Simulated scan of single mutants.
Amino acid sequence: MNNNENTGVLKKNMVIKNSSLLVGLKAGIPIAIGYIPIAIAFGLVAKSNNIPNHISIAMSLIVFAGASQFIAVNLLSLATGYPEIIMTTFIINLRHFLMTAALSQKLKKCLSKKYLLLLSFGVTDETFAMASLQEKKLAGDFILGLNLIAYLAWTGGTAIGVFLGAGLPTIIQSSMGIALYVMFIGLLVPNLKKSNSLLTVTFIAITISSTLYYLPFFKALSTGWMIIITTILASIIGAILFPEDGGNDE
C-alpha cells in the first residue's frame, strides 16, 4: 500500500470516528436537557445543606452519579460517618457493574482497555438505556459522545445550581426533583411501542420492584439492594424468555 492509499485510509477512519462522535452527541441531547434541571436541583440541595461550593462541583466532576450524590449530601448534613456514606453509595451504584457488563456486549471488539475504562466512567442509567436500545454494534466514539454531553450537562447544571440557583422561584426549585423520572420515562415509552420483549421485561421489573417494596418481609432491604435484585432477576428472566444471538461487528 503506497503513501496515498495510507493517507486515504487514515482520512476515512477519521471521518468515521468524527461521525460516530457527533451521532453520540446528538443522541445524548435529550439526556443532557433532562440532566440540567436535576443537576441544578442537586446544586440547590448541596447549598441548602451548607456543603462548600467546590465540594459540590467536585462531586459532580468525580462521582458523576445523581442518586448517590443526593444521598451523600443528605448523609453529610446528618454528620454520618464516612464509612457508612461510602458503603451506601457503593451499594446503590453496584448496578453499574451490570450495566457496563451488558453494554460491553454491544461494543465493537477493537477497543483498548484504557478506552473502555474511560467509557465506563460516563455510563449512567439514561445513557445505558439509550445505548442498549440501539440495534447494531456500537462504536466507542458513539458511547463517548453520548456520555460526554451528559457529563457536561450534569457538571454545568451543578455549577448553575450552586452559584445561581438560589435565586430561582421556590415553585421551580421544588419541581426539579421529578425531572429525572420524567426524562427516563420519555426515553423508555417510545421504545416500548416498538418492542414487545422490552415491554414484557419492563412489566417484570415493575412487578419485582413492587413486590420488594410492599411486602413486609423485604422492608429491611435498602433501596440500592432493591434496585440490584430487580435488575438481576428481570435481566435473567428476560434473557430466558427472549434469547438473542449476538450479532457480528459492523
Score class of each variant (00 low, 15 high):
Ile36His: 00
Pro37Glu: 00
Pro37Phe: 01
Pro37Lys: 02
Ala39Phe: 02
Ala39Asp: 03
Ile40Arg: 02
Ile40Lys: 04
Ala41Ile: 05
Ala41Phe: 04
Phe42Trp: 01
Gly43Trp: 00
Leu44Gln: 00
Leu44Ala: 02
Val45Met: 05
Val45Leu: 07
Val45Asn: 05
Ala46Gln: 01
Lys47Asp: 06
Lys47Ala: 07
Ser48Pro: 05
Ser48Asp: 06
Asn49Met: 06
Asn49Thr: 06
Asn49Trp: 03
Asn50Ile: 04
Asn50Cys: 04
Asn50Tyr: 05
Asn53Asp: 02
Asn53Leu: 02
His54Lys: 05
Ile57His: 01
Ala58Met: 07
Ala58Leu: 09
Ala58Val: 07
Met59Ile: 07
Met59Val: 08
Met59Asp: 06
Met59Glu: 05
Ser60Val: 05
Leu61Met: 10
Leu61Trp: 07
Ile62Trp: 04
Val63Leu: 10
Val63Lys: 12
Phe64Ile: 12
Phe64Gln: 12
Ala65Val: 08
Ala65Glu: 11
Ala67Asp: 07
Ala67Leu: 08
Ser68Asn: 13
Ser68Gly: 13
Gln69Phe: 09
Gln69Lys: 08
Ala72Arg: 04
Val73Leu: 07
Val73Gly: 07
Asn74Leu: 13
Asn74Val: 11
Leu75Gln: 14
Leu76Pro: 15
Ser77Met: 08
Ser77Gly: 09
Leu78Ala: 07
Leu78Tyr: 07
Leu78Glu: 07
Ala79Phe: 09
Gly81Met: 12
Glu84Met: 15
Ile85Arg: 08
Ile86Val: 13
Ile86Lys: 14
Ile86His: 14
Met87Glu: 13
Thr88Glu: 11
Thr88Ala: 14
Thr88Cys: 12
Ile91Thr: 11
Ile91Phe: 14
Asn93Met: 15
Asn93Gln: 15
